[in-house]
Simulated scan of single mutants.
Amino acid sequence: MKLRRDFPRGKTPAEALADVQSDAIATFTSTGTWPSTFAKDAAKAHADALVWESEAAALYELERATKANAEDLRDSLSVDVLEHLDGRLSEILDAAKDAGETLGDVTTAEQAIEAGGDVLDAWRRLTSLLKDYRNVRDASWDVLRAVSGMDERSSMQQWRNEGYGEIKDVRMDDVPAHIRDVMRSRAYTIEYLVWLARSGSAFVPTSYDDLEFSVTASTEPVAYDDFGPIRDLSPVVLPEREYKPLNTRRDPRPFVD
């Protein structure tokens, strides 16, 4: 906090009084005379230090309260911030998908320069979008770390190093190996950005729980039925049975033996 940083250094009342006492003792030792202004000097030094200490304590409390309020505000708005970043990610990838269609099979800057025209413009556009993509990713991880506990941050770092947090609803085993390598290294490329845009699976986790759910969904084994195709074991709902009233009317004709 600038106010506290700019506040001049000072002494506590005890330190200020001790300095006056030391000076008086040094004077007496060297001259044999006790300073006649000692009491006045000691009182002034103590009073001035007390004023300094009071303001220093107030500024310290102001800094503490400001940080606490900022952290509370950050925590309460973190979901909104992450949702905004997710929306920004969608905008980036929509633009990347359009540019990727123009790019066609071009995968290098040299090929784009050689092609020229719209292809070169698309490559330049993707280069700019790639920078925006990195910024969104870095910002989202910064927010997630800031609002998470130590154990959660440790798990998030491990997941991030393994490539999670980039896509959802897709099993990692189904992602091409070279794309997984980019996810793990975070050395993002235009080819990766175009693949991500076409996949439609990119997202920004809005919380630790959201990220954890995505990791679990990407790693859970597929369920197999040893006896054949997977069967629907949900309860069968039968239609309501219609009941007809019994015919209780007696035959008016006499009984004939």
Rank of each mutant, 00 (worst) to 15 (best):
residue 162 E to W: 10
residue 69 N to H: 09
residue 136 V to C: 02
residue 239 P to I: 07
residue 242 E to A: 09
residue 122 A to Y: 02
residue 96 A to Q: 00
residue 157 Q to H: 06
residue 62 L to D: 05
residue 86 D to R: 01
residue 139 A to S: 11
residue 129 L to Q: 13
residue 74 R to V: 12
residue 230 I to E: 04
residue 35 P to M: 05
residue 221 P to S: 07
residue 63 E to S: 05
residue 177 A to M: 12
residue 204 V to F: 13
residue 158 Q to E: 13
residue 178 H to N: 10
residue 37 T to Q: 14
residue 227 F to N: 09
residue 202 A to W: 10
residue 48 D to F: 05
residue 245 P to Q: 10
residue 21 Q to F: 11
residue 68 A to S: 13
residue 119 V to Y: 02
residue 161 N to P: 09
residue 147 V to F: 10
residue 43 A to D: 13
residue 19 D to P: 11
residue 70 A to M: 12
residue 113 I to F: 09
residue 93 L to K: 03
residue 202 A to I: 05
residue 106 V to G: 01
residue 1 M to W: 06
residue 211 L to D: 10
residue 120 L to M: 03
residue 13 P to H: 00
residue 70 A to E: 13
residue 251 D to V: 03
residue 217 A to L: 13
residue 192 Y to E: 07
residue 36 S to L: 14
residue 89 L to D: 04
residue 161 N to C: 13
residue 73 L to N: 12
residue 242 E to W: 11
residue 61 E to A: 09
residue 63 E to D: 11
residue 146 A to M: 14
residue 91 E to T: 01
residue 54 S to Y: 04
residue 174 D to G: 11
residue 257 D to F: 04
residue 78 S to P: 06
residue 216 T to A: 11
residue 249 R to A: 12
residue 147 V to M: 13
residue 187 A to N: 04
residue 1 M to P: 06
residue 243 Y to K: 11
residue 42 A to Q: 15
residue 60 Y to D: 05
residue 129 L to P: 14
residue 4 R to W: 05
residue 190 I to Y: 06
residue 86 D to W: 06
residue 183 M to V: 00
residue 188 Y to P: 02
residue 77 L to S: 08
residue 33 T to I: 01
residue 248 T to E: 14
residue 206 T to K: 10
residue 43 A to N: 13
residue 28 F to P: 05
residue 126 L to V: 04
residue 198 R to K: 09
residue 209 D to Y: 08
residue 203 F to Y: 14
residue 39 A to K: 12
residue 206 T to Q: 08
residue 233 L to N: 15
residue 158 Q to K: 08
residue 89 L to R: 00
residue 54 S to I: 01
residue 221 P to T: 07
residue 188 Y to G: 02
residue 165 G to L: 10
residue 99 A to Q: 08
residue 147 V to C: 14
residue 138 D to M: 01
residue 234 S to Y: 14
residue 184 R to W: 01
residue 153 R to Q: 04
residue 21 Q to K: 12
residue 244 K to F: 14
residue 181 D to N: 03
residue 246 L to P: 14
residue 71 E to N: 14
residue 235 P to W: 11
residue 172 M to Y: 14
residue 36 S to C: 15
residue 77 L to V: 03
residue 107 T to D: 04
residue 174 D to W: 15
residue 97 K to Y: 11
residue 185 S to L: 04
residue 115 A to Y: 08
residue 34 W to N: 05
residue 252 P to T: 01
residue 244 K to H: 15
residue 27 T to D: 03
residue 157 Q to M: 06
residue 210 D to C: 07
residue 150 M to C: 09
residue 238 L to M: 12
residue 36 S to A: 15
residue 167 I to V: 12
residue 120 L to K: 00
residue 90 S to M: 06
residue 231 R to Y: 09
residue 120 L to S: 03
residue 42 A to F: 10
residue 144 L to E: 14
residue 183 M to K: 00
residue 199 S to Q: 00
residue 9 R to H: 04
residue 26 A to K: 10
residue 155 S to I: 10
residue 177 A to V: 10
residue 63 E to W: 07
residue 121 D to C: 01
residue 224 Y to R: 09
residue 142 D to K: 15
residue 244 K to D: 15
residue 74 R to G: 09
residue 178 H to A: 09
residue 163 G to F: 09
residue 137 R to I: 01
residue 220 E to A: 12
residue 103 L to Q: 02
